[in-house]
């Protein structure tokens, strides 16, 4: 720690501090305020929390927006759909990504560097365009349907777009590099002699994997899962482009509530509940995991 950091250097701390208070904290506080306000016609489309009238100071605050959300299964289902989408795709990314990361990390250094570059290229390329690529592939006249018809598995093109399987596929595809890269980061540091040692001592391959390799790559698994789970929970683009009306997700509900229905208080209440239901568990998990790591060190 630098002890006598000069007084005139306080701007070093306070520039980013103020920025984040102003553009991150105040906006969040504002949506909390709007979420407990009463909707009304006009601009802005909600009534002020405090107003002066002939009866004195009036407080126009309500929990009605929250009650409305939690009494409607439509909204509750969208939270559950988002959670289950995030969970399913994280597990699938892990199952697909782990063997890839493992074998890339175990390759000879010369091949490994080329494979690593090949992992980074999709990671860097535009997210939106990679989702769009699946929209092209899954079309009725798309390449997958053409191939299936050509080999005689189907006679008519089947509609593969606009359902929640297409959404899962799109999510797994776009987020796979986010899982593989941190896994690779931990597996590449892994001492391969440990596998030989475990084999020499008579452990079966499965035992070696469960008792030696898996625990040592746990930090990579956690990091990769977080990088997939967190953004997928609020994902809007993929359900909008590949999904249909069979399952609605949290991100799209907020978007529509704001842009289509123009109901600011409900959109804000959805966002606040989203923070509590979807984001807090992640923060709590991270704190617990940090504590667990700290104790084990």
């Amino acid at each position: 720690m630098i002890k006598n950091f000069k007084k005139q250097n306080v701007w070093f701390v306070f520039t980013p501090y103020l920025w984040l208070v102003l553009f991150f904290f105040v906006p969040l506080a504002l949506i909390f305020k709007i979420s407990i306000s009463v909707s009304e016609w006009g601009m802005p489309p909600y009534r002020d929390l405090f107003s002066l009238s002939e009866n004195g100071l009036e407080i126009n605050s309500t929990l009605g927006n929250y009650l409305f959300i939690f009494s409607d299964p439509f909204y509750i289902r969208s939270y559950l759909n988002s959670l289950s989408l995030a969970f399913t795709s994280t597990v699938l990314c892990l199952l697909i990504g782990y063997p890839i990361a493992f074998y890339v990390a175990k390759s000879k250094p010369s091949i490994r560097n080329i494979l690593l570059i090949m992992l980074i290229i999709p990671f860097w390329s535009s997210f939106l365009l990679r989702v769009y690529a699946w929209k092209v592939l899954l079309q009725g006249s798309g390449i997958i349907n053409s191939v299936l018809i050509h080999i005689g598995l189907i006679t008519e093109p089947i509609s593969m777009l606009h359902n929640h399987y297409a959404v899962i596929l799109g999510v797994v595809y776009t987020y796979l590099p986010f899982m593989i890269l941190p896994l690779y980061g931990y597996l590449v540091k892994f001492d391969l002699n440990l596998i030989d040692a475990s084999n020499d001592l008579g452990a079966k391959p499965l035992n070696t994997f469960v008792k030696v390799i898996l625990p040592l790559s746990l930090p990579g698994i956690v990091a990769g899962s977080m990088l997939v789970f967190i953004p997928v929970v609020g994902e809007y683009i993929i359900p909008e482009m590949l999904g249909g009306s069979d399952k609605l997700y949290f991100g799209k509900i907020i978007w529509d509530e704001f842009f289509v229905n123009r109901d600011w208080p409900i959109a804000s209440a959805l966002a606040m509940s989203g923070i509590v239901i979807l984001v807090f568990p992640i923060i709590i998990f991270q704190l617990m995991y940090a504590k667990y790591n700290f104790r084990n060190e």
């Binding site: 553009f23 105040v26 906006p27 969040l28 504002l30 949506i31 709007i34 967190i230 953004p231 929970v233 609020g234 809007y236 949290f250 991100g251 907020i254 978007w255 704001f258 600011w264 959109a267 804000s268 966002a271 989203g274 923070i275 979807l278 984001v279 992640i282 923060i283 991270q286």
Partner: peptide, 14 residues
């Protein structure tokens, strides 16, 4: 950890 949709909404209202 903030979903971008919430970030976007809060900034717009701000």
């Amino acid at each position: 950890v903030m979903p971008e949709i919430i970030l976007g909404l809060s900034l717009l209202l701000f």
